[in-house]
């Protein structure tokens, strides 16, 4: 027997043995495990936030035309809460999870046959919203913001401005006045960074005029770490440590 390129069976078998001897035996490194745990906490927080949004059973197929913008706006109905509270607050029900996925989900394929790779921070996908509706699920309901919840439809409506050139000073001022009540809005806009941790304070900012999110790590003896990520950047745009 020969391989496709005329390689003999013995040679194929030898290569197979070499490959088998080179398989990765190491467990997941602790730093990667910690990173995944952080990302998972952010996902759970994101979903839990949107789970609080008011949802309405989809009764008529014509509702499929609902735009992503409307659905996203509806998910902002929830009140602002700190991320830590969100993580410790268990899921609020089936309907909520659907709304959460609709609000925050990137491209999502409809079948397990189509298990394509992740696009974790991609723009919201209207098709994904429609996929859920096809399944007779729930979609975010009335897009009118619930003012009693204290949230706003635009996380950046009153956002502090941060300039790259003066970022340290701007962020120091931001820490003093941080209003963390924007998590839901950021999640709905797909701008809740994957780096968020349960004990972070999350603030919407305008970074050089671009919508962005600042993650304020808990202050420590060596200062306070701040990550700023513009919504259209895949990785944090700025990383700073503010002096204690």
């Amino acid at each position: 027997m020969t391989g496709h390129d005329g390689t003999g069976h013995d040679e194929q078998e030898l290569v197979r043995r070499l490959l088998a001897a080179s398989r990765a035996e190491e467990p997941l490194p602790p730093d990667v495990a910690a990173r995944l745990d952080d990302a998972l906490a952010a996902l759970v927080a994101e979903r839990t936030v949107s789970a609080g949004a008011s949802v309405t059973p989809l009764s008529r197929r014509r509702r499929r035309v609902v735009s992503w913008a409307v659905a996203a706006a509806a998910a902002v109905v929830v009140g602002g809460v700190a991320v830590g509270q969100l993580v410790s607050n268990s899921g609020e029900g089936d309907a909520g999870s659907t709304a959460a996925d609709s609000a925050a989900g990137p491209s999502v394929l409809a079948s397990d046959d189509a298990g394509a790779g992740g696009l974790p921070e991609a723009a919201p996908d209207p098709d994904a919203q429609e996929d859920r509706e096809d399944g007779g699920g729930l979609v975010a309901g009335d897009p009118q913001p619930d003012r009693s919840g204290g949230a706003t439809t635009d996380p950046w409506a009153r956002a502090s401005r941060v300039a790259t050139a003066t970022a340290e000073r701007d962020l120091a001022a931001l820490v003093a006045t941080a209003d963390p009540g924007v998590v839901a809005g950021l999640a709905a806009q797909g701008c809740l960074p994957r780096e968020v941790r349960p004990d972070d304070t999350v603030v919407a900012v305008l970074l050089d005029g671009r919508p962005a999110t600042a993650l304020l790590r808990p202050a420590g003896p060596r200062g306070q770490r701040v990550l700023v990520r513009a919504c259209d950047d895949e990785r944090p745009t700025l990383r700073l440590r503010l002096a204690p």
Partner: peptide
């Protein structure tokens, strides 16, 4: 792996059970 975890978390509802869950996870 993080991309995959995020994708699997979000698209879990699309899993139809045609294959083992581990197969699906590996595929993602």
């Amino acid at each position: 792996l993080q991309d995959a975890m995020v994708a699997a978390f979000r698209r879990a509802g699309s899993f139809r059970g045609d294959s083992a869950v581990t197969t699906w996870l590996h595929r993602v």
